[in-house]
Write a protein that binds this DNA or RNA. Structure first.
Length: 699
DNA sequence: GCGTATACGTACTCGCGCCG
DNA sequence: CGGCGCGAGTACGTATACGC
């Protein structure tokens, strides 16, 4: 669990972020714009396709082999301990660079975390075994130096500002993420938020400024899949998965086809078009993110830069093992604010220089077959990314791209958001203050009742208590009262009328369908319905309705009595009881209904508090003795006890008068020993989470 | 044709109860 | 007693059905 101090710290550098083991799929070269500057790694060779037209004859030049003209080759040598500056500045020797870094870092405590990375890098430099390792470390140091010194706007470091240990917490507190199950949250088919968690593929990328992943259902973790197979049924794919895990990467692939018309794919395409901001949350089940302190960590806002389709392989294990090829839609996102250092990635090599816009670095090649242009994004070479083309995701020999790791050019591209596309829907900060109530509000409106981000530690906290916000982090004491006012009775009456009209309408429609015999009939339910006796009457100022519930043999096994207060009764204390219940803090709170203690823990929508005997039914509700109950509860219980006796007498008289046999002994009646109080806010409802029958059934 | 209601899906998870 | 299926759950977008 989090505390204020933990959340405020720049997180300790995870081992996987250190320069010795750069982040997945990248980071062995400088991010500088090699296209125009000629850095240590030259991505565009003299044999590259015509950059103006992007055309290449796939059969003649688009070959992939050991001397593939598109495979970048390092041109720097170990002897050259000087890395060229991307902006033409005279290169600085590493020794001098290190001195500069030390000086710079000492001047500002904002650079604490990267300083640690830099220190690690310097240490690692001495221990580097290979030329490639050494070059990578030097490149990272150089990029950091460039970062710190060359930026007149003083690039700032972000920090882990917003987090939660509960899925429900982030969904209730963040306006841009309300997806309790799926990874992608959309409104009007526009992507607003995305959760990256356990199901990441080996080739997925999560860097400071670039994310490449896939979304949507139908995926399977190869490791879990293999674990569920017999010991002698381990597949090649499992080995791929295991290797990926050993390297700190994901092991997930897809086993069902992904539809281009799905909400997710359509939304991502729309996001690409609109440049909408997509808030990213990383779960600590994400490989490479497992040492994060919080279960869900808010990163920053990104925007979609590319959406394309790949082909994933899934090996089915059965009597006839087969490999299934599934379409898989992928997305590349880029951080909106390129002028801040991302708290989750301290590797300087993963940042683009501010004074240059890299734009598109990938070669664009037109497919001979479908005449569609595709970027060359894979290390394995160019392939047509048009999923309708017969050459889609095939290499020049017609073999499916197997690894699909993304090349450095694709990772180094930077395409800043077009300011003209900025929308009012795009949030300005991952943090937002607690919504304040207004003079007109009752305090129970949907726009007031959501979760909040703790102003002290950033923990996304659900509105658990009726009368206050409170941080869910055990180590944090932040609370803020919420004033709940008396709900106007005229508003209540209006709602009741609307509700009654809706129910009547629905019932009429059902009856009509029933009469038209357009409905599957449950004969037992219909028979029971006929046998239930019903009557209405009045006792003093109360109107009552009663039902006698029969067994299949006709014996009365139970009864229901409903007492409705008249206007006189309401004016004589009942309305006052209702008002008092609304505004008093009697301990109403939401309680756990599912997966208690887990990150997926679900709390009931309604607030509850029990008094009297301990209550246990599905949801465990905290209970207080009647001795601790407030007056309003005791008065309610008193009225209920009176009604209980009246109902019992009325039922007894009714059954006796009808000459029926009852299974219950009316002379034995336990007094009410418990009072469960439930609180509902706007649009709240209690429901049943189960699949309804396909056809309507009249009961 | 439009508005409303309903069904259904979405990267979850784990304790509990039932059944073999 | 172990395995397995399901649940007083969460919000919302989308497709479809239906009624007027």
């Amino acid at each position: 669990m989090q505390t204020r101090s933990m959340a405020n710290q720049v997180p300790a550098t995870p081992e996987h972020l250190s320069p010795e083991t750069p982040m997945r799929g990248n980071a062995t070269v400088t991010p500088d714009c090699a296209k125009s500057t000629g850095t240590a790694f030259e991505p565009i060779t003299p044999n590259s396709p015509d950059l103006e037209t992007g055309h290449v004859q796939a059969k003649d030049e688009g070959t992939v082999s050991g001397d593939d003209p598109f495979v970048q080759q390092p041109t720097a040598t170990l002897e050259s301990t000087v890395v060229p500056k991307p902006d033409g500045v005279v290169p600085v020797p590493v020794t001098q660079l290190i001195d500069q870094l030390n000086t710079t870092t000492a001047q500002s405590d904002k650079f604490e975390s990267p300083k640690r990375v830099r220190d690690d890098a310097i240490t690692s430099l001495d221990n580097a075994n290979t030329k490639r390792q050494r070059l990578a470390l030097i490149a990272g140091l150089e990029a950091y130096d460039h970062f710190v010194h060359a930026d007149p706007r003083d690039r700032n470091f972000t920090k882990l500002e917003v987090w939660s240990n509960f899925r429900q917490g982030i969904c209730e507190a963040l306006p841009w993420y309300k997806s309790y199950k799926g990874s992608l949250y959309t409104t009007d088919k526009v992507p607003r938020g995305m959760l990256l968690d356990s199901l990441d593929r080996p080739q997925d990328v999560l860097q400071a400024q670039v994310i490449i992943t896939t979304i949507g259902g139908g995926r399977v973790d190869l490791k879990k899949q293999a674990d569920s197979n017999s010991a002698d049924d381990k597949s090649t794919d499992y080995e791929v998965g295991e290797n990926a895990i050993a390297q700190g990467r994901g092991s997930v692939t897809r086993k069902t086809h992904q539809d281009e018309n799905s909400t997710e794919v359509q939304s991502l395409k729309k996001g690409l078009k609109l440049g909408s901001y997509v808030g990213i949350i990383a779960g600590n089940q994400l490989s490479g993110f497992k040492d994060q302190p919080a279960r869900y960590n808010v990163l920053d806002f990104f925007h979609v830069t590319d959406v394309w389709c790949e082909k994933a392989a899934f090996k089915k294990f059965s009597d006839k093992p087969e490999t299934k090829i599934c379409r898989e839609w992928c997305v590349r996102l880029e951080k909106v604010s390129l002028d801040t250092v991302s708290w989750w990635d301290n590797n300087p090599a993963n940042y683009a220089p501010l004074d240059q816009v890299c734009g598109e670095l990938c070669a664009k090649i037109t497919c001979d077959i479908c005449n569609t242009q595709s970027k060359r994004i894979y290390n394995e070479g160019w392939t047509c990314l048009n999923h309708d083309c017969k050459m889609h995701f095939l290499d020049h020999e017609g073999n499916r791209i197997s690894k699909g790791t993304y090349n450095q050019q694709f990772l180094a591209e930077r395409t800043p958001v077009d300011p003209s596309k900025k929308s009012a829907e795009d949030p300005s900060s991952v943090f937002h203050e607690v919504t304040q109530t207004t003079a007109e509000a009752h305090g129970t409106e949907t726009w007031l009742r959501g979760g909040v981000i703790c102003e002290k530690c950033g923990c996304c906290s659900r509105r658990i208590y009726w009368s206050r916000h409170a941080c869910e982090s055990p180590g944090c004491d932040w609370t803020q009262p919420v004033q709940v006012k008396v709900y106007p009775l005229e508003d209540l009456a209006e709602e009741n009328e609307t509700f009654a009209a809706r129910v009547a309408k629905s019932k009429a429609a059902t009856d009509k369908r029933f009469l038209a015999q357009d409905m599957e009939v449950n004969p037992f339910a219909v028979d029971l319905d006929i046998k239930i006796r019903h009557r209405v009457g009045s006792i003093g100022p109360y109107v009552f309705a009663q039902f006698l519930l029969p067994s299949p043999t006709g014996q009365i096994i139970g009864s229901v009595s409903i007492f409705r207060a008249s206007d006189d009764i309401r004016a004589n204390g009942v309305d006052e009881l209702f008002d008092n219940l609304s505004v008093q803090d009697i301990g109403l709170k939401r309680n756990v209904v599912s997966c208690g203690g887990s990150a997926m823990e679900g709390m009931s929508r309604n607030f509850s508090q029990n008094f009297g005997a301990f209550y246990k039914f599905g949801v465990t509700v905290q209970s207080k003795g009647f001795s601790e109950a407030p007056d309003v509860v005791l008065k309610s219980v008193h009225r209920l006890q009176w009604a209980q006796k009246e109902a019992s007498d009325l039922t007894k008289g009714w059954i006796t008068g009808l000459g029926l046999e009852a299974s219950l002994d009316f002379n034995v009646s336990e007094p009410i020993n418990e009072c469960l109080v439930l609180g509902y806010m706007q649009n709240d409802r209690i429901g049943v989470s189960r699949r309804l029958p396909a056809k309507r059934v009249r009961c």
